[in-house]
């Protein structure tokens, strides 16, 4: 068995753009759920909107900064549209509304009626919107090898995507750390615990929830942009399962912590890669075919999510005394 290859594959996952994108999405969800207690089951919708916003405006010839602003704007509008009516609802209603809204985004996005805009279910090809981003890269074209990793400098699955993606993750962590330890974060924590108590102390709970929903959604939309950088905008790959993986990542690392989402994302993708590669090496294809090994990986994810929520809801980094999943 080729352990070097397996280990470098697994280590490659730790820094992969997808891992960064999911970490970022989980950080956004952390603002919703970890800090505020909002049950957002539509994070993939924010990501997909961000991806569409960025890709479509780039294809329309807009510069990078404008495209990023469009992505952010889409998620802000989505958050407001969702939040204005629903933030007064019970927690599980919010869950159903967000999951349905994200599905609507995906169904509308993949509809043949919008083929000219979104490319329908085949989505938007990566080459059509990557150029402005890659032009910004200070590196020359070519490939670089660092340690066991060899990637292109600028082309789609590149060092450049990795650098920008992880820089965004770092910035987001910094932001969350600052907010978590500020009076603003304190109000959110209070809302998570008991919003009526916070209301009785004169805080505009609705406004705070809205700010949290928008902020987490914006981070989610940036995650969407990072996610589609090494691939295409494919509505069907950004559906409910994506939201569920983001939740698993957040709960694995620890909600309401600064680095929980990052750790969760790294562990999640590295573990899946480990299962996949080791499984292919060790398990004869008569016992498990290659795609079965992959499916086995996802079964492990599902079981892990169940066990985590039951036995360790605070995740790896969380403090049980500080967080219990108990949202009204």
């Amino acid at each position: 068995m080729d352990w070097t290859r397996i280990l470098s594959n697994v280590a490659g996952e730790l820094i992969a753009p997808t891992t960064a994108a999911y970490a970022l999405a989980a950080i956004g969800l952390n603002v919703h759920f970890g800090l505020t207690g909002l049950l957002n089951f539509g994070q993939a919708g924010f990501m997909l909107l961000g991806a569409y916003g960025f890709a479509i405006s780039t294809i329309a010839g807009w510069p990078l900064w404008a495209a990023v602003l469009v992505a952010i704007g889409c998620s802000v509008v989505f958050a407001l549209v969702l939040g204005i009516p629903t933030l007064k609802l019970r927690g599980d209603y919010l869950a159903i509304v967000t999951i349905a809204a994200a599905e609507i985004v995906r169904i509308v996005g993949r509809s043949t009626a919008l083929t000219n805009l979104t490319g329908a279910s085949s989505g938007l090809r990566g080459d059509s919107y990557k150029e402005t981003f890659q032009e910004l890269s200070p590196f020359d074209d070519g490939t670089s090898t660092i340690g066991p990793f060899t990637y292109a400098n600028n082309a789609s699955n590149s060092w450049w995507v990795r650098i920008v993606g992880w820089a965004l993750v770092l910035l987001a962590c910094l932001l969350i750390w600052r907010l978590l330890n500020s009076p603003w974060g304190r109000v959110l924590k209070g809302i998570r615990e008991d919003e009526d108590a916070v209301r009785s102390l004169g805080k505009n709970v609705y406004g705070y929830k809205m700010q949290a929903l928008v902020l987490g959604g914006v981070i989610g939309s940036l995650a969407g942009v990072v996610y589609v950088m090494p691939r295409a905008v494919q509505p069907d790959s950004m559906g409910r399962p994506m939201t569920f993986w983001v939740w698993t990542i957040l709960l694995l690392g620890g909600a309401a912590t600064v680095f929980g989402p990052v750790l969760g994302s790294m562990l999640f993708w590295a573990a899946l890669m480990l299962i996949k590669t080791v499984g292919r090496e060790l398990i004869p294809s008569t016992v498990m075919r290659a795609e079965q090994i992959e499916q086995f990986g996802w079964i492990v994810v599902g079981v892990t999510l169940m066990l985590l929520v039951i036995f360790r809801p605070q995740g790896i980094l969380g403090d049980k005394k500080e967080l219990a999943i108990n949202v009204r």
Partner: peptide, 26 residues
């Protein structure tokens, strides 16, 4: 608010904390 400390509970009761606004909090 049982998963916050006694002191944090008290601070939450105060009014006029500019840090309770998102941008100032930064």
């Amino acid at each position: 608010l049982s998963r916050m400390t006694v002191m944090e509970n008290m601070r939450l009761g105060a009014s006029d904390q500019p840090g309770e606004r998102l941008l100032q909090a930064l």
